[in-house]
Amino acid sequence: MFKKVAIAAVLSLMVSGVAYAGLDALKGLGKEAGKGVAASAKEGALSAVTNKLKKVQNEKGPIKFKTGKAEIDPSCDKTMTAIAAIMTDYPGFHVQVDGHTDNVGKPEANQKLSQDRADAVVKYLVDKKAVDAKRLSAKGFGDSKPIADNKTKAGQAKNRRVDFTVTKM
């Protein structure tokens, strides 16, 4: 009888050991799943704030520049104020200002103009709207990322734009 009880106890411990090993494996999977959920939530938050920034330009008006220059049109102050307000609402977020041009002119000149315009937006937000410069960066894309057909004036106008992308929390 004692022998049967001892065998049953050993088998029970072996099964428990397998169960615990299985739990450890599940715990590892849980950590990985948690990381995936956290990354997904982070991406969702970045995307949501990026969309808010885009919506501002749809509602208040796009950021405009004098033709061929990086000088911001004063009529864009309402848009810039709204952009700064969103950044105040989300203090831990970093925003990249993306400058774009149409395809008129030389690609090298368009690249420089798009960078200069993105830099001008950053400078405006820092100097006139008190946004922390560490929370902003500027990147010029030239004519490499059109959103409309450059064969028409309307398409070219759409391609001359500034976008905002939230890059980090």
Score class of each variant (00 low, 15 high):
M1Q: 09
M1V: 13
K4Q: 14
V5A: 15
A6P: 15
A6S: 15
A6I: 10
I7V: 15
A8C: 08
A8S: 13
A9S: 12
L11S: 12
L11P: 05
S12V: 08
L13T: 14
L13Y: 03
M14Y: 06
V15C: 04
S16R: 04
G17H: 06
G17Y: 04
V18K: 12
Y20P: 11
Y20H: 05
G22F: 01
G22W: 00
G22V: 01
A25E: 10
K27T: 14
K27R: 10
K27V: 09
K27E: 14
L29T: 10
G30Y: 01
K31I: 15
A33G: 10
K35A: 08
A38F: 01
S40P: 07
S40Y: 03
K42L: 04
E43Y: 03
E43Q: 11
L46M: 11
T50L: 00
N51D: 14
K52V: 00
L53C: 06
N58M: 08
K60E: 13
P62S: 13
I63D: 11
K64W: 02
F65T: 09
F65A: 08
K66Q: 11
T67F: 02
T67S: 12
T67A: 13
A70H: 12
A70K: 12
A70I: 04
E71H: 05
C76V: 13
D77V: 10
T79C: 07
M80R: 10
T81Y: 02
A82N: 07
I83D: 05
A85S: 07
A85Y: 03
M87H: 06
M87V: 13
M87Q: 14
D89M: 03
Y90F: 10
P91W: 02
G92W: 09
H94S: 15
H94P: 07
V95C: 13
V95W: 02
V97A: 08
T101F: 00
D102M: 00
N103K: 03
G105L: 03
G105V: 04
K106Q: 09
P107V: 00
A109D: 14
N110S: 01
K112D: 14
Q115S: 10
D116W: 03
D119A: 08
D119C: 05
D119G: 03
V122Y: 00
V122D: 06
Y124Q: 15
L125R: 08
V126W: 07
V126G: 09
A130E: 15
D132C: 10
D132H: 15
K134C: 13
K134T: 14
R135D: 14
L136S: 14
S137Y: 03
A138C: 06
K139A: 04
G140H: 02
G140M: 01
G140A: 04
G140K: 04
F141L: 11
F141M: 08
D143H: 01
D143G: 03
K145F: 01
K145R: 06
P146I: 03
P146R: 00
D149R: 08
N150S: 06
K151C: 03
K153D: 12
A154C: 06
Q156E: 07
K158C: 10
N159V: 00
N159P: 14
R161C: 09
R161V: 05
V162Q: 06
D163Q: 10
F164Y: 09
T165A: 13
T165V: 12
T167H: 12
K168C: 04
M169S: 14
